[in-house]
Design a protein around this nucleic acid. Structure first.
Lengths: 116, 116
DNA sequence: GGGAAAGAATACGGATCCGAAACGATCGGA
DNA sequence: TCCGATCGTTTCGGATCCGTATTCTTTCCC
């Protein structure tokens, strides 16, 4: 189906999900980190630092730093590309998958009681 | 209507809007700042630091800092409550209203071409 | 009037972030 | 082989963020 959100509904949805993310105790992901996480989990691999930088429109060091932080959180992991050892492949993790899944459920739940 | 988003659609929507926010050049708002902004613009005033802190489940200094930053960005403003001068009232601004409006349009637009 | 309580801001030390620039490692073509 | 291009990381100075604890003003109430 084609979803028919109106602006007030859209904003309400965005606010409630954001509030849930702020309140859940977990350290907040920045917009960049969120974009990286969802790109990795929604788009087919492989994902490289350069590819993510280009897609997000930010510099490579910004991606490296975000991956450092998200790596500590165990949301993503990295490994060398053995075919071309210059590349680093960004990989999914169990915890990252669970986190993404939870976000999906959150948005679905919040979309169910929007103002008319 | 009751929106019927499925998890993959929800995640795709969240990803594309987040990507738009990252790519638009404006400095990214943190999750807390976004929650504050949307609360101020979607809920009836008045909004105080304490009230926002309680609603977001974070400390008051975190709210003060977020308001400092968003004040510099001209997304919100502050004034003393003349009735009870201990309180600070958080107010909307033209730029903030435009920013919120743009986000609403963004979510609406991205919700229109979601995968079946 | 005086002290407790409330509200917001400030100080602190530590962590993270930013873009730009420099740096190694690796690859690939002449 | 060697030299340029590519890829990711590191470094730099400066800004922002975190939570805790403290400070300052104002209000409330005995």
């Amino acid at each position: 189906m084609t979803t028919e959100l109106r602006p007030l509904q859209a904003l309400t949805l965005w606010r409630e999900v954001t509030l849930d993310l702020v309140r859940d105790g977990e350290p907040d992901l920045s917009a960049r980190q969120m974009a990286i996480l969802l790109t990795i989990y929604l788009e087919p691999p492989p994902h490289t630092v350069r590819g993510l930088a280009k897609r997000l429109g930010v510099t490579k060091p910004a991606i490296t730093r975000a991956l450092d932080t998200m790596g500590k959180m165990a949301l993503v992991s990295r490994r060398r590309d053995e075919v071309d050892r210059r590349n680093v492949i960004v990989q999914r993790t169990v915890k990252g998958a669970l986190s993404v899944e939870r976000l999906g459920d959150l948005v679905v739940a919040r979309s169910k009681d929007l103002p008319r």
